[in-house]
Design a protein around this nucleic acid. Structure first.
Lengths: 221, 221, 221, 221
DNA sequence: AATGAATGAGCCTTCATTCAT
DNA sequence: TATGAATGAAGGCTCATTCAT
């Protein structure tokens, strides 16, 4: 991830040798295991090191402190997620708009579903972590990827393409998270997924007309 | 909130006398203050009691443990939010669909905006809290309120009204949260808000036709 | 009990009115209940007061502090036990020595058995209580009672009657406690009881002869 | 001690390295010191660690909690006591019965006398401790040791040797404890000790005859 | 006199981090 | 370079005792 992390959250050494890399990976996996098994507030450095098969001391040579480990963990996760979504976008270049939307929603949905507990665990580990930089970097990558994809399709309202893009992403990412947190039955989740696609497509299809009226009534109670 | 909370998270005594009530309120406010100022993981019972101007012992007379306090805090918040949104829905009975949507989005958005840091603080305090019951109770109230509102309008696709409802709510709530967490500039937030309204309206306007095609392309990458 | 208790352990007021007496009794009973149900280290003043149906404040008007309550509780128990044993002794005046011994052993044994958990609970409550005065007072009463009883029988070795007495009491009281603490099956307990009686009788029957040899071999390893 | 302790009372790690062993010993000694100086209910983990010259954290690396420490302390004490008494018994194999009895009583008495305050302190520390397993294991070892010793002597009433054994042990252990708790002057204690030996010897000498009469009068008052 | 809410010192326990080996 | 024993600050929670009502 190309985010410039808060100085104090940097990992201590970039793993360059093979041994280091595998050690770091073991630590990451161990952290996830502990997160899943014991929950965020029972994730202790000792426990992670133990499950990773290394000593705490060793762990502290790769990560200057616990926060750095969690930060790196989230970074890795978002990095992989971004890569995955970028691939999805790339593959849909030139397709129809509905296809693109469906690919976005389904891709994100599936990424979250596959290891949904991991996802949830990571969410919780990120609380109180100064990970705005990570989130922003992720957002930027997604913006770029979706932007490139959408621009390869005939867009009706080119004027505010950026606003449309950010709206779409906010809606998709936000809705998926919301659905996951409500723990609805799989069946209902699937149905909602279809509807979200329909909604996004309908949104893109709607011309600029009508916007005025909507705005007129946008006074809230 | 009519949720039946996990037994171990129940508050210890229902404050009935005036003094008790004000004490409990002071504790709630103090907890929010600490949450805002120091963050979730620095919210200690001592600190909360201190800021509330009571002793720890007193606090423990009202809440059997820290978790119960946080649970009650979230409960109170969601309760108020639900009341507020119910009022919004009630006031729009009989209006046009776009009006309803706008009211929903704007109402929720404003509720979150007004004390947005509190919102964020509470989100983080709820991590690792078994608050599913709360979330569900809140969801149920919102479902009922929006259901009653929408049914008072001429709905085109009555067949799957429930699916439409849950989709709308998921999209609105999820998107709002997402936008808040990204901390976008106020201006951009406002623009997205308009777009979300447009999107929901477009969704409701789209007839049942076209659903088949959408579904056909809903294979993910 | 005619022990002069350590000044700080005195009960606050001698209950003279009927109400006071019943309140104090309720508190005593409550204390025993709590002791049985929850164990010594979970015996809190609040819990006792609660079960007694009075407020803590009221309880503190009868007992200046927790220790005083426990002290008084033990005092009452030993008082009753002493009374009971005195009666047993009185009723055996003039009987044969074996009868007296049997009465002593059986009387004590039964007193302990009847409410054996209470006994055990009280033992544990007395730990760290400066109850030497109580123990001594109890011992003195038992000495007097058994002395009077034994002197009403034809004793062979009048010379060291005091030593015999204190030995008998030590053996009986000590053995009973030991058997109880080992929690042996009731059947075995009964058998041991018989043996203890036999042993005491044999002891009393043994003339002064033979004492010299025993003493000769009393070097320990 | 070969007792299988309640699972939750197990010590955390068996000290195998030299350093660990001395640390654990220091903790044990410190615990005894604190017990003696401050009493059971003022024995805090902090205080013990402090006097042992280690940090609390270190202490918790060897004992998962306070109870485990006290359990281990009692275990160690009983272990040593058992070893000592086994030696006493072994050394008297083949001797006369009075010699054996004297050895038992004197051996136990001396063991208790040497560090009588420690003994008392440990008794009190064991209250509210689930140490039945320890007591039983100790009893079993004593049974075996005395059994082997007594069987090496010409026993008159071989029929109920087990009953005789358990009676002897109950009487000896119980009486010693009782005498100690009454805090009698050393002189008197010594005299009682002699008497107890005489009593036990008289008991063993008494033939089976006469038992019937005793039993006949064993109804209690 | 009775009540019981309030107090706060002090307890047990955890865990991130260090550093001698 | 790896190890893991040691540290000790800090947290959650209890409960004897007081005192305003």
């Amino acid at each position: 991830m190309d985010a410039s992390p808060p100085r104090h959250l940097k990992a201590r050494k970039t793993p360059r040798q093979a041994r280091s890399a595998s050690t770091v990976d073991a630590i990451f996996e161990a952290a996830i295991q502990v997160l899943l098994r014991d929950g965020t507030h029972r994730l202790t450095t000792t426990r992670v090191a133990e499950r990773a098969g290394v000593s705490v001391g060793t762990m502290y040579q790769y990560f200057p402190h616990k926060q750095a480990l969690l930060y790196a963990l989230n970074e890795r996760y978002l990095d992989r997620l971004a890569e995955r979504m970028e691939k999805v976008c790339r593959e849909r270049h030139g397709n129809s708009l509905p296809d693109m939307i469906a690919a976005l929603v389904n891709g994100y949905w599936e990424a979250k579903t596959e290891r949904s507990e991991v996802t949830r665990a990571l969410y919780s580990s990120a609380v109180e972590l100064d990970n705005e930089a990570l989130i922003n970097a992720f957002a930027r990558r997604m913006d770029a990827a979706t932007g490139a994809m959408l621009e390869s399709a005939p867009m009706p309202n080119r004027a505010n393409i950026d606003l449309v893009k950010v709206t779409l992403l906010s809606v998709i990412f936000g809705t998926v998270r919301n659905v996951f947190e409500r723990n609805l039955p799989a069946e209902e989740q699937g149905a909602i997924r279809e509807e979200v696609i329909r909604m996004c497509v309908a949104y893109l299809s709607s011309a600029d007309d009508g916007r005025m009226e909507t705005r007129a009534s946008s006074r809230s109670a």
